[in-house]
C-alpha cells in the first residue's frame, strides 16, 4: 500500500475562518479537504487560492446537519484514502433571535449543525485517528459560549456544548495520542459578523482591550499552532483568540 497523504479536513471551508484555516494549514504542508453545504463556487475558490501557492486541495459537498451524509463522506473519501492528520470542526451557522421568540426549528437547526454535526465528524475522525495512533482535532467554538450573548441562545448553547465535547474527547482519545482543543474566536471580521449594524459593532469594540476586531487569519494562526509539533502537550483546552474581550 502506498503511503497515504497527510491531510487536514476543514468543515465549512468556503469562507471566513474556515477558508483562512484551510489556506494556513496548506502552508503547514497538509493536503487540504474542505467541505461546503450547497454552493461549490466559494469552496473551489478556497482550493484555487491553495493551489496557486503550491498546495493541494479538494472540496466536497457535505451537509453537516445530516448524520448519514457524514458517515458516508468519511467512509468514501477519508478512510484508507488519506492520512487524517487534522480535523477542524468549523462548519457553523447562526439563526439569531431573542429566546422568548425563538422557534423550535431555529433552536434545532443551530444545535444540529454546530453541535451534533461537529460531534459526528469528531466521532468519525476519532475512529480513523485511533488506528493511526495520532491526530489533532480542533473545534471552533466562540467567545459567546463563555460570555453569553443576547439573541444567541441556540448558538451559545451549541458552542458551549462543543467546549464540553472538546474536554471529554480530549480525555477519551489521549491514550491514542490524539489531542482535542477548542479555539474560541472573539469578534472576527467575517460574513457572519458583517451584517451587524454600526451601533452593535461600536459596542463590541468598546469591550475589546486591544481595540480592534480580529481577522480570520488570527484564528487560522492559532489553529495551525495547535496542529504543530510544538503543541503536542496541549489538549482539552479552550484557547480564546479575542483581543482580551473575555478572560
Amino acid at each position: 500500500m502506498s503511503e497515504l497523504i497527510k491531510t487536514a479536513l476543514v468543515t465549512g471551508g468556503s469562507r471566513g475562518i474556515g477558508r483562512a484555516c484551510a489556506v494556513r494549514l496548506a502552508r503547514s504542508g497538509y493536503q487540504i479537504y474542505v467541505t461546503y453545504v450547497s454552493k461549490p463556487g466559494p469552496a473551489l475558490e478556497t482550493c484555487k487560492i491553495i493551489e496557486e501557492s503550491g498546495g493541494t486541495a479538494s472540496s466536497f459537498a457535505l451537509d453537516i446537519g445530516d448524520h448519514q451524509s457524514i458517515v458516508d463522506f468519511f467512509k468514501e473519501k477519508i478512510k484508507d484514502r488519506v492520512f487524517l492528520s487534522v480535523l477542524v470542526n468549523n462548519a457553523g451557522r447562526t439563526m439569531d433571535g431573542l429566546l422568548v421568540r425563538m422557534g423550535h426549528e431555529q433552536w434545532d437547526q443551530v444545535l444540529r449543525v454546530n453541535l451534533s454535526g461537529s460531534f459526528f465528524c469528531l466521532q468519525q475522525a476519532a475512529k480513523i485517528m485511533m488506528r493511526q495512533k495520532t491526530g489533532r482535532i480542533i473545534n471552533i467554538a466562540s467567545v459567546t459560549a463563555q460570555s453569553g450573548n443576547p439573541g444567541q441562545a441556540n448558538y451559545t448553547s451549541a458552542k458551549a456544548g462543543l467546549i464540553g465535547l472538546t474536554k471529554t474527547a480530549a480525555i477519551e482519545l489521549a491514550p491514542r495520542n490524539i489531542t482535542v482543543n477548542a479555539v474560541a474566536p472573539g469578534f472576527i471580521e467575517t460574513d457572519m459578523t458583517a451584517g451587524l449594524n454600526q451601533e452593535v459593532r461600536d459596542k463590541y469594540l468598546s469591550m475589546i482591550p486591544l481595540k480592534r476586531f480580529g481577522s480570520a487569519e488570527d484564528i487560522a494562526e492559532t489553529v495551525a499552532f495547535l496542529t504543530s509539533p510544538g503543541a503536542s502537550y496541549i489538549t482539552g483546552q479552550v484557547l480564546g483568540v479575542n483581543g482580551g474581550m473575555y478572560m
Binding site: K127, M130, R131, E172, P175, R176
Partner: peptide
Amino acid sequence: ADSLDLTELIM
C-alpha cells in the same frame, strides 16, 4: 487490553 483497546477490537 484497556477500554479503548476493547472498543477498537469490537469495531
